[in-house]
Design a binder for these strands. Sequence first.
RNA 1: AGCGGGUUUGUGUAAAGGUAGCACAGCAGACUCUGACUCUGUAUGUGAGGGUUCGAAUCCUUCACCCGCUGCCA
Length: 562
Amino acid sequence: MADEIKLPELESRNFIHAFIEEDIAPGGQYEGMTVHTRFPPEPNGYLHIGHCKALTIDFGTAEKYGGLCNLRMDDTNPTKEDEEFVEAIKEDIHWLGFDWGDRFFYGSDYFEEDYRQAEGLIKKGLAYVCQLTPEEFKEYRGGVGVPARSPWRDRPIEESLDLFHRMRAGEFPDGAMTLRAKIDLASGNFNMRDPVLYRINHLPHHRHGNTWCIYPMYDFAHPIQDALEGITHSLCSLEFEAHRPLYNWVVEHCDLPSKPRQIEFARLGIDHTVMSKRKLRRLVEEGRVSGWDDPRMPTLCGLRRRGYTPRSIRSFCERIGVAKSANIVEYGFLEHCLREDLNETARRVMAVLRPVKLTVTNYPEGKTETVTVENNPVDPAAGTREVCFSRSLWVEAEDFLEAPVPKYKRLYPGGPECRLKGAYLIRCTGCVKDQAGNVTEILCEYDPESRGGDPADGRKVKGATIHWVDAATAADAEVRLYSDLFTDPDPDAADKDFIDCLNPNSLEILTGCKVEAALADASAPANFQFMRLGYFCLDSKDAAPGHLVFNRSVSLKDSFKK
RNA sequence: AGCGGGUUUGUGUAAAGGUAGCACAGCAGACUCUGACUCUGUAUGUGAGGGUUCGAAUCCUUCACCCGCUGCCA
């Protein structure tokens, strides 16, 4: 069962809604009918965030109008599809919180019906068996202003019917013949130039084994599947726009229980990100990433490992809107959506990434005490935890500067009073350096009257609050620095291979960039991801999901430096 | 070239002839036990020209530019 994911109510209304409302209004094509949609992934790869946009539209539209959305594996081409992907796809969709109930289907389960419909078309003289070889087919296809040709177009119905039966019976090798719709060889829309309806392919199907050796094309199978399932609105991406006339042709000429309508929308683009399934597949196959769930991938399972929450991804997809113009959303917006969610839900733990020793010189040697820190300042219900404090601590190296820059309000000799989060107020008194001039130890004095972080006299603290960990009790942790497979420049714009556009930093990180980290909370999980913009995220592949928030930021631009 | 689409601020998206709004990013402040979060303020936009109208992002028209299609893939 899918997890319930609560999203804020959005006043969303887009052009698809406008079409649908026309359709179901009095006098409309679907007056009085319930709107039904479907999400039809092809099981030939893993789902990525672009699919979440489609999911959001498909499920969201059905829900908005009180209908249902089916999940249907679009598996009409056995060359690429595999059962491996079916389960992964279902898992990812459930992870996002979408629920198809008991309406899970396979396009291939309609093969018999597809076949029957094809026979019907032949009998009506609307389809014929064409014996052009693939090479001839290409040659005879024509061009702009030049009609296509097929010498088999006017073959008698009985002959086509017979050949079609024998195609199914396996009498012919791959590519020997096809079943084509008889539409318009001169159409300016190439999809209407007698499109192929069936091709021969002697390849076992992942579900039907060797039952079939002819398989219906998407353009033929899809409208039939939609109609059979009672889908009223078949929402798909823009590249199918030119196929809509063919979709309508099939709906019109086949013997179907309903007449679904196809509406297209623009697919999601995100800057600096590789999104096409073809490219993602190549990254996996060439071993440039560890798998489909490599944390740098924009796949749902990759994002999951990087610590993205389902809610944040859904929120993102809700808020980017739906239109027909090409769009490239800034990656920063995705991050905003994550931050927004994490800020409310992530349990905080103090951690130090690039540690430098800090000694509280006036704190008794050998003494230890525990202080209380809240687990999530914006959610008191998250409770508090006890953290060990002593004379010797680790703090972030960047929290100290020997010579301060303007507006710097952290530690420097003679600087402002700062707060060690949840512990005491301190004042920096100096530092110790090695021969090379590197700071090896920060020295400070604390105010014993400020236990818990608040001064006894209620004075304002000018400096920043600094996170820290106790040197003696800190747990070592391996922190993995992940970034996306950011590309620069845009992989689609350049005429070079997108592999050459990948951010070299993210490739380097693949080898396992380890950063020493000490965790204040000894019970904290030992396996973290460090996300840009200041979040630690637990690698949910190895342990239960969770997040730790860190208080420094790194921007996208920084990921290209060095 | 033929067919099909598209064009609202840096990005995404609203405005169904009637104040061009929202979110993110930016900038400037305030607040804060995370330089986070939150809050406040602020700059930037209807591709171009003509027409209809009291009034046009919206309707008409001409043009410009951008994208998709020419698999026996989906």
